[in-house]
Amino acid sequence: MRVITAQMVTKAVAELAIKANYYLPEDVKTALTHMHNQEQSPLGQEIINQLIENAAIAAQNDVPICQDTGMAVIFLELGQEVHIDGDLQTAINNGVATGYSEGYLRKSVVAEPLFNRKNTGNNTPAIIHTEIVPGDKLKITLAPKGFGSENMSAVKMLKPSDGVAGVKKFILDTVLAAGANPCPPIIVGMGIGGTMEKAALLAKKALLRPIDRHNANPDYAKLEEELLTLVNLTGVGPQGLGGTTTALAVNIEYYPTHIAGLPVAINVNCHATRHAETLI
């Protein structure tokens, strides 16, 4: 058994919150440059240019890529041979509070969603997803999620007979309804299968995969390509002002499901598909 202290977790989470918000991942930078060269709309090119320049300014000045520094979504892969000395959940939330304060990140969480919506003041609580895995390590991934794009996400319980055509129609309807709102070019995370909540979680997890890497299953890899092409035929374009770059990537994760169902979830992300991870 290996001991990991609550303090180690807090420190790691604080660092991840700052890193994820300041520095745009390399795969996204590469995709932006590639799409800039392909974009047919001059205004669209100008916008993609601004995003590339923005990432450079954010990294150089150590400031957030976007003012919406999100709700902190945390994925834990906790080795079953690890003993956490202290309260894990509190350790994570202390890390979020520290990172959002020391990193000058915006605090965007309200304590109660419907009636008084009072800001908690330190961006806690985080959304925490924990998986127990073999081993004696703890992997922490922090993905700040802004709500301009989160609000455009959707879950649909398709019928098995809807098939691939149903999936295509769902993504088109979702991307067209989202239009300019999620700050395109977007990255689409899609979860297929499982149950309703499993599909949603898969869609979120799909956004953690680098966008230059396809699903290992060739059928799903091909579907990712097809859906990306389709989404980019909508004409929504950068910021919804028209163009050929509506999305930079479509990432799909799937899971076994029930004989009667075909759950599909779409988690929309802006170009700033922020995430950072560390292994303790």
Partner: peptide, 27 residues
């Protein structure tokens, strides 16, 4: 429309920021 996601680039054009009301609302 300003470019959503170009928040650091836009911030570089801001020369001053002064709260005039509802300070309790923070951001």
């Amino acid at each position: 429309a300003a470019t959503g996601g170009a928040a650091a680039l836009i911030a570089a054009t801001v020369k001053s920021y002064e709260v005039v009301a509802y300070a309790d609302l923070g951001a």
